[in-house]
């Protein structure tokens, strides 16, 4: 079972990111489960969402304390929400940041990507969730980029979908380039 925790702020599409990730896994005929941090997500407040991906039916109903992967949509929450706590050895950390992180946990493959910049450029709005999923697919290869694209289509439509898709592809190429 592959467990992912996504950190960010209310209004940045953190919950939608977890949902899209679970849809992408579903499209690859896998079992997946996504759920928010069950709080009242106030605009700006730190927020967490979770996603489990597995080949067997997922029955477990507990929070994810030791994730295999972390997506940080807004690096300013790293400190206040202890976003990097509990990451498993050999895990993956994808951070939305235009500059490298000052500190990061041991033997974990960490990547930074300016998802907000890419989102602003391709989508015109600073919502980084679809972009980061593109990066996530490249970093972990737990899901394919095509499934991410199809998942984006379930959440957005028309021009907005196309823009998010191209943004996700840019992130995918960028991260796979770095691999």
């Amino acid at each position: 079972m592959f467990q992912v925790r996504i950190h960010g702020r209310g209004g940045q599409g953190v919950v939608t990111a977890a949902e899209m990730l679970s849809i992408a896994a579903f499209l690859e005929k896998k079992y997946s489960q996504a759920f928010p941090s069950f709080g009242s997500e106030r605009t700006g407040a730190p927020v967490v969402a979770f996603c489990r991906i597995s080949d067997r039916e997922i029955r477990l109903r507990e929070p994810i304390l030791e994730p295999n992967a972390l997506i940080v949509q807004d690096k300013t929450v790293i400190e206040s929400s202890h976003a990097l706590d509990g990451i498993l050895e050999g895990g993956y950390v994808l951070v939305n940041s235009s500059i490298p992180l000052s500190s990061c946990p041991k033997n974990v493959s960490l990547r930074c990507i300016d998802a907000t910049g890419i989102a602003l450029e391709y989508v015109g709005r600073p919502i980084p969730n679809a972009v980061l999923l593109g990066g996530f697919a490249a970093l972990t290869s737990v899901i394919k980029i095509d499934s991410v694209i199809d998942a984006i289509k379930t959440k957005f439509s028309g021009a907005i979908a196309e823009k998010n898709i191209s943004a996700a592809q840019v992130a995918y190429e960028k991260i796979s380039g770095e691999n």
Binding site: R9, G44, A45, P46, D74, T76, V77, E79, S80
Partner: peptide, 8 residues
């Protein structure tokens, strides 16, 4: 409660 952490 340090809501200052909400700022971007």
């Amino acid at each position: 409660n340090n809501t200052g952490s909400w700022r971007t």
